[in-house]
């Protein structure tokens, strides 16, 4: 247990959500559900944040914004896809302007489906994300984790649009690959 997961700050970005999940994220922070009792504060500054909540699917116009926010966040960081649109594209998957879930743009650590996701689900996902955060912190302390910003050109991200999951690009598998390369 470290101080990081005792008080993780979160940043929220609405990729192309219908607002349903966004207002549930905000509802989590208000008196009824009160995420602040876990030390969680909503911040607008990516440099302050440890947890990145993405709602909604990614499209051509906002894929860069999502990646910019992700790149500005400092390690260790956790990405949580809130709602089914952020997980897979959801009901809008067939729309012409939807590329897919948040994992098209950035590596996602926790998937939290639901339409709209309930505040209880968000709290569960954040608490689960804190476990990942702690693992990453340990890896960082041991010198195994280095921050690698996403490439500027989106060609790699766009390849995965055809419904493939992007788990192969997730952080841990990159790490494992590096480990096996080194060995």
């Amino acid at each position: 247990m470290s101080s990081t997961i005792k008080s993780p700050w979160l940043i929220h970005y609405d990729a192309s959500s219908c607002n349903g999940c966004d207002i549930e994220v905000l509802a989590c922070l208000t008196p009824m559900y009160d995420l602040e009792r876990f030390g969680i504060i909503n911040t607008g500054n990516p440099k302050h944040a440890d947890v990145f909540l993405v709602t909604g699917s990614v499209n051509e116009r906002n894929i860069k914004v999502v990646q910019q926010i992700y790149n500005q966040m400092l390690e260790p960081k956790v990405v949580i896809a809130c709602g089914i649109c952020a997980c897979t594209g959801g009901i809008f998957k067939e729309c012409y302007n939807t590329l897919g879930g948040a994992d098209v743009a950035i590596p996602v650590d926790v998937y939290a489906p639901g339409c709209a996701i309930r505040p209880e689900g968000i709290i569960d996902a954040v608490v689960m994300g804190l476990g990942v955060l702690e693992e990453k912190r340990k890896a960082l302390a041991a010198g195994e984790l280095v921050s690698d910003p996403l490439p500027d050109d989106l060609s790699a991200a766009k390849k995965s649009v055809g419904g493939k999951t992007v788990r192969e690009s997730s952080f841990f598998e990159t790490l494992q690959k590096e480990d096996s390369d080194a060995a």
């Binding site: 609405d14 192309s16 959500s17 499209n59 116009r61 906002n62 809008f92």
Partner: peptide, 11 residues
């Protein structure tokens, strides 16, 4: 504008 455009009328 355009950050939230999904194109759902076409659905």
């Amino acid at each position: 504008l355009g950050f939230v455009h999904r194109g759902l009328e076409k659905l």
